[in-house]
Amino acid sequence: MLRVLFFGRLREELGCGEIEVIADDSCRDLDALQAQLCAANGERWTRALGAANTIRALNQVMVSGNAPLADGDEVAFFPPVTGG
């Protein structure tokens, strides 16, 4: 399984903070996972996850670009951070 988390404004827009996804070939990497989530959940998800400023993290480290996924990975989608 993949653990997929959403935070901040994105979590609110999706009405979802966490889901589990079966780690099969349809989500072999971050881009494939995102495409699968959008296909399964429709326009609202496509817009929110596809926003130009959406950040992706893999196993609690921000990643730019695509990255391969394996069973047990933790993926997160969130807007630009505003701490401090």
Binding site: F7, A57, P80, V81, T82, G84
Partner: peptide, 10 residues
């Protein structure tokens, strides 16, 4: 911290 730590303010 302002750009890399995952906090969100509302």
């Amino acid at each position: 911290l302002k750009t890399r730590a995952p906090f969100w303010k509302k």
